[in-house]
Design a protein around this nucleic acid. Structure first.
Lengths: 327, 327
DNA sequence: TTGAAAGCGGTACCAT
DNA sequence: ATGGTACCGCTTTCAA
């Protein structure tokens, strides 16, 4: 492994001092054109590249934010990430992306590493606040889609209540009464989204919604729909935990010979762009994913700079019903 | 904006030297338990976080690789990115993701910024080698899906020839003779994928393939298929530039009342996981996207470390036909 | 126009 | 167990 070429090497070869090298490289004035050229040539020849650490050490700017997401392959997180990258880029900040592979173990090891590499973290975490704090040791952190108790954290809150109510209203207005839900499987408690759904159903006097559980994949959604319809053949509409599950449900419905939305209306959650590639295009309770990413970055930036936090009400992203074709 | 808390501040408050602070923080032995606690308390109190620059400067390890992709929202690039992240993580390296938004202008500004932030770049570039070199100034670079002339660059090459031949063989074996293609619109020249397709058709004595052009989106694919079938109603199969376009074609086919694959067989390119959420699941000439990302990282790592490049034949990723349902 | 010297915030090595 | 000192690679005064 070849030794690093430093500014001193360049200086020696060019026959000048390193300050002069610095001047040449950073396009400062106050330098003879000939000297500058000589330095540049030497630098090229040696393959010199300035150390980003040394630079960063002396110029105290340069903000790097760690974005922690459970699964880059999940289009929802990809959209959030895209929003974050865009927002960061606009400010000249950098984003290091960490994928925790939906695993607590990976999340821990990610956090351990993250503290040494970035100025702030934003993202989706499943560890409790105490442990997060322990790993992060004072680093600014913005939790997405999850409230915080400790003032040490910030949150980007997601409110789907209004959107889910709109969805149920929409279904009821179209004449649906027997409406089921496909919730997320494999979590201890029912999801918030399910609570919103139940509430909305209650409001219409439609009680005891029937709920199935789907693992997080299109196949999971398909399977869950099959089971649900098996037990409750009378259902004319389903609301799902998210769009991926809804897409699986779409597929399963077609296999069962049910036309969507005529025989079975389907409404997802997330409002992924992806919802337009399936047929019929997916109606969904949509989140502004770009905005989520952008907000997280903005808030992280303020924390890093020691500026006051964004006001709470701006840290909230509300879902709205996006009517396409499936309902 | 509050001033940075340094190790000296902690040392002063704890009443020790900074070396002792360093010991306490890095869990070195040779330190009194009481002292260590005192230091830790002081650090917490002050909200001290070590500077990653100073650390990086003295510990010469820590590799950061820049991943440049045209569009994170394109699932193909997402999959490559996921592969890269995974490979980097396994080595303890970091990946900064840059999205150039499919724009030359953004690509330039990205490159300008990238040089100061990472040890090597990998990704998809559209600038010519001379300009890349100029921006990169000696930084190791791995071009994906694109060959290089200058030995200054590395490439991860993509070979779809075999896979596309398999696809055509598959169609021909199923009795198809009138096979069209939906190429990528908006590029000056026909794509490599089109060349492979034409060759494969030739081999079967099926000449003059009919080709339409689709813009890069599902809608683009749908539109292009409509046009193509309008001009060539006899087609019984289409091969597309990529999976997204194929998914649009799938949708368009259904709208036209054509069953897939019975009336029209569809084969995409890329082999996206996404291909399973549509119905019928997409048959595709599949690339191992994870591997592409992993190879790029591996090669970048070697370049950074000054190790010999991976042998050329290992830097090649070949596509294979992935038969699902649409053909 | 150029160079010398003083840090930036840490860690490593050598004393004590 | 603790502190002193040098040094990582670069930029920024300040002189010359």
């Amino acid at each position: 492994m070849s030794k690093r070429v430093t500014i001193n090497d360049v200086a020696r070869v060019a026959g000048v001092s390193r300050q002069t090298v610095s001047r040449a490289l950073n396009d400062k004035g106050e330098i003879d054109a000939g000297t500058k050229q000589r330095v540049l040539d030497a630098a090229r020849e040696l393959g010199y590249r300035p150390s980003r650490f040394a630079r960063g050490l002396v110029r105290q700017d340069s903000t790097t934010i760690g974005l922690v997401i459970p699964d880059l392959l999940n289009p929802f997180f990809t959209e959030v990430a895209a929003g974050a990258l865009e927002a960061a880029r606009a400010r000249g900040w950098h984003v290091i992306v960490y994928d925790t592979a939906d695993s607590i173990v990976e999340e821990r090891s990610t956090l351990e590493v993250v503290v040494a590499q970035v100025d702030a973290v934003v993202g989706y975490f499943s560890l409790d606040e105490a442990e997060l704090d322990r790993h992060l040791g004072g680093m600014p952190a913005v939790l997405i889609g999850r409230d915080h108790r400790s003032p040490r954290f910030s949150s980007i809150r997601i409110d789907g209540e209004k959107g889910v109510h709109e969805a149920v209203d929409h279904l009821v207005a179209a004449g649906h009464r027997r409406i089921g839900m496909l919730d997320h499987a494999g979590r201890a408690e029912p999801s918030l989204r399910r609570d919103w759904f139940t509430d909305a159903m209650d409001e219409h006097g439609l009680h005891a919604p029937v709920v199935g559980n789907a693992v997080q994949s299109a196949d999971g959604g398909a399977e869950a729909l099959n089971e649900l319809l098996d037990q409750h053949p009378g259902l004319t509409a389903v609301f799902t935990y998210n769009d991926i599950i809804a897409m699986g449900a779409l597929k399963a419905a077609r296999r069962l010979g049910k036309a969507v939305p005529a025989d079975l209306a389907v409404i997802g959650f997330d409002g992924l762009q992806l919802g337009t590639v399936v047929d019929p295009a997916l109606t969904s309770v949509a989140l502004d994913t770009r905005r989520i990413g952008a907000l997280a970055i903005a808030q992280a930036g303020r924390l890093v700079a020691g500026e006051p936090s964004l006001p709470d009400e701006e840290l909230l992203v509300s879902a709205v019903l996006l009517v396409r074709e499936s309902a």
